[in-house]
């Protein structure tokens, strides 16, 4: 995919995403019915759940791109993995901040070390580690390979997070949408949730594409600087 296509795809997805985001905020604050037992704090649900889904999607992209990078060694795939990892980290942070704000009202505590919360925090730390490992070595190629391994291993945590509420005794609610017998939600709530999910997915892919374009530009700029340095008489060529 050319950089020109990436740019225009990013702009188009971003415009759609921002438009749908405004729509879902209208739905959340002016349209959807208030949940009976928890009251308005339940409206955090419309960013908490899509945030989690998009974080899982992003880390899934990281794992796939990392595996392809280890196989083919193509820098473009590594750029995509890094862009997705940044997005995944942002959305996991959203989940980890919106959850306690909701939990304080619903459970009476900001945080509890129950399986799903603990595993989600672990996921966040793993992908912080992804960036630390990447920058921990002077050899950039080695750093990318190590980070790719972390990216793959980290994604193994995602099914554990999803299944933790069924496998372990958990304070976290059971799934209300991804259930074998269908969603267990008021239709208006489901519509709002799906709008929010679509809006943030588009925003994520838009920013992901811009971040990928930035990484490719930076990489090309570094390569150009190396080429120029190697051509200048008397200059030493930096070893990558």
């Amino acid at each position: 995919m050319s950089l020109r296509t990436v740019r225009w795809a990013g702009v188009a997805l971003g415009a759609l995403g921002v438009g749908l985001t405004l729509l879902f905020h209208w739905q959340v604050f002016f349209w959807v019915p208030t949940e009976a037992s928890m009251g308005i704090v339940q409206r955090i649900f419309y960013i908490h759940l899509p945030g989690a889904w998009i974080a899982f999607l992003a880390f899934g992209i990281v794992a796939i791109c990392s595996a392809v990078y280890l196989w083919l060694g193509d820098d473009k795939v590594d750029h995509a993995a890094r862009a997705a990892a940044e997005g995944g980290l942002i959305f996991t942070t959203i989940v980890l901040t919106s959850g306690p704000l909701w939990g304080k009202i619903a459970w009476g505590t900001w945080w509890t070390w129950e399986p799903r919360l603990t595993l989600t925090l672990l996921l966040w730390f793993i992908y912080v580690g992804y960036f630390m490992v990447r920058n921990s070595t002077d050899n950039a190629e080695r750093g990318k390979r190590f980070a790719a391994v972390v990216g793959i291993v980290g994604a193994l945590n995602i099914p554990l997070i999803h299944m933790s509420v069924q496998w372990f005794r958990s304070l976290h609610p059971q799934p209300v949408v991804a259930r074998p017998d269908g969603p267990n939600l008021h239709p208006d709530m489901l519509t709002t949730l799906l709008t929010a999910l679509l809006a943030w997915t588009l925003v994520f892919f838009s920013l992901f594409l811009f971040r990928y374009a930035a990484a490719r530009l930076e990489s090309a700029e570094e390569l150009r600087a190396l080429t120029r340095a190697s051509k200048a008489p008397g200059d030493e060529v930096p070893v990558p």
Partner: peptide, 29 residues
């Protein structure tokens, strides 16, 4: 119920600050 509005406000504000911060960092790059 309205007392809990600030939790909702804080959750949405933090989410948007994070996304906006990411967008700004990309734009600066």
């Amino acid at each position: 119920q309205m007392r809990h509005f600030w939790h909702v406000f804080a959750a949405y504000a933090i989410a948007w600050l994070l996304l906006f911060g990411w967008a700004v960092s990309i734009a600066r790059r």
